[in-house]
Nucleic acid binder design. Structure first.
Lengths: 175, 175
DNA sequence: CTATTTGTTCATTTTTTCTTGAACATATCA
DNA sequence: TGATATGTTCAAGAAAAAATGAACAAATAG
């Protein structure tokens, strides 16, 4: 986020091509700094940041102009944000273009992210684990370390189960 | 993990340059499949996988030979794993080289990862948030959307606090 | 129906991240 | 001490991920 985009004026939806305000820059900066935790591209954090501090829903154009971002990135970023439920498109009477607004409940954000990003990975892990179990059952290992292998493989199943138990809880904990 | 490295033989620490066994490949495959959740390089998952199914602690050489990995990657990967507490180096009587063994308690693994990777990021986020708050206090905004901005900025603090509360809990939940 | 606006997809380019390998440091042995 | 073994660091190359921009599709206004 170039410092040169700073503006003293308050952010305004009335002027789509206005520079980002100091407030907007600071909010975006916050989102960009934490978004790496969840492995999402910076551009997505930028989009979310602008929508987060916008009193009005904004159309694609406005986001592109204010963030100096390509249409492709913006379109894909919004698609991702919508899949998480982090952004919704809002009907604006008399407006032809889609307008987007940010979902701001932490609980929902977390739930969407877990559902779309974490769960699928855990499922793929589970498939690998099934394969591993079949392999182990078939081999009928009987060396001196047989017990060790049994234990380690069994432990993976425990991990897998534990993770699947904890994830939904996480959603509940967040208020 | 090339399929050509498959071996029907049981994994053996006695033969450091032996091909990876089918069991080892399957275990590594499992770790590689889930490691993207935590944003750690594949090579690190491979190292951990080999140690996880090894009845004996293994030295760097062995890991390099069996995984066909460069010395640099192996050294750095082990450093990272040690920082998480996912791998410990073990004293082996009469052995000159360091030997490594995997920590297998999910609770400890999670705690180490949170401490080393998540917490620092949240702290940097908190700094950004402090900056944002100073900015907002100084500006003394009074437009029609003043309340809206107040609410959104306040909400970020709530998120930040909530995250810091939940993380330690996570460690406790995992048995 | 046609022209225009709006939005998506995807091949290419750019950026970031990971891996390698060689130089350097450190420790141990003879 | 010098020679060898072990391990780390880091610049450069390779691989992966993200961003761009142009072609395409869909919708709507005239």
């Amino acid at each position: 986020m170039p410092i040169t985009m700073l503006s003293e004026d308050p952010p305004s939806a009335a002027s789509p091509e206005a520079e980002l305000s100091a407030l907007e820059v600071a909010v975006i900066d916050f989102f960009v700094s934490i978004v790496k935790v969840v492995g999402v591209p910076k551009s997505v954090a930028e989009l979310y940041g602008v929508l987060y501090v916008s009193p009005q829903p904004l159309p694609l154009d406005t986001l592109i102009q204010r963030l100096r971002m390509s249409k492709g990135s913006a379109s894909q970023g919004l698609k991702l944000l919508r899949s998480f439920g982090a952004v919704r498109s809002v009907y604006m009477p008399g407006e032809r273009r889609d307008h987007f607004t940010a979902e701001v409940e932490l609980k929902r954000l977390a739930a969407g992210f877990i559902r779309e990003e974490i769960q699928p990975r855990l499922e793929r892990g589970q498939e690998k684990l099934d394969h591993l179990n079949r392999l182990h059952d078939a081999s009928n290992e009987s060396g001196p370390d047989a017990e060790f292998y049994d234990e380690r493989i069994y432990r993976l199943s425990t991990w897998s189960r534990r993770s699947r138990e904890v994830l939904p809880l996480l959603g509940q904990i967040l208020e």
